[in-house]
Amino acid sequence: MSNLISIRDLTKSYERGKQKVEVLHGLTLDIPKGDFVALMGPSGSGKTTLLNLIGGLDQPSSGEISIDGKRIDRFSSAELTRWRASNVGFVFQFYNLMPVLTAEGNVELPLLLTKLSAARRRENVAIALSVVGLAERAKHKPRELSGGQEQRVAIARAIVSDPTLLVCDEPTGDLDRKTADEILTLLQTLNREHGKTIVMVTHDPRAAEYAKRTLHLDKGQLAEQAAH
């Protein structure tokens, strides 16, 4: 299977006051299309930094990142923004839904960047909500939903524009075990049945078991890989 993500000699450092902190040190990694990868590691190991770089939320200090053949490390900020809109779906630990919008409003938000008609947008939103099993909660605002339901809405928002790649930062970190299992099963379904490539950061080994393989990061470098 061809690689969707190719990372070569990736480094990332931040300025913290007068100090320069290097978070990733020359990391090399390939993730094939259709993979479901769990990124694990202790706090400060660089998991979220790597996820942000893969998702195009940040730029590396050096090295290469190719996603689906595109060198996103060479993109300008505006190019990255456009690329994210059509290629990546994001799922956050705390859902990060817009509290003023209903579930369907939240899911429709990324589609406002497209040229789809209002009717077509509504149709896509309905499909995305039905995929996550929340069609009947479309008119509810986030505060009227449970944590699990909010995360499902967030996943619907992530998939509504049909991106190739889903990046998930601790998607079950704020959920109880049972709900977490439901969300992870949903992500597994999106990976297996809808062909989405998923990169997920997690601290939870049980969550990692839903992935096809787990990558362990330590001190900004790839420590080990394990297939499930």
Binding site: L57, R82, R84, A85, F90, F92, P99, L113
Partner: peptide, 13 residues
Amino acid sequence: PELAVLKTLGFSD
């Protein structure tokens, strides 16, 4: 955080 999410989703600066 909401404004950051908008940018994450692909809304330009």
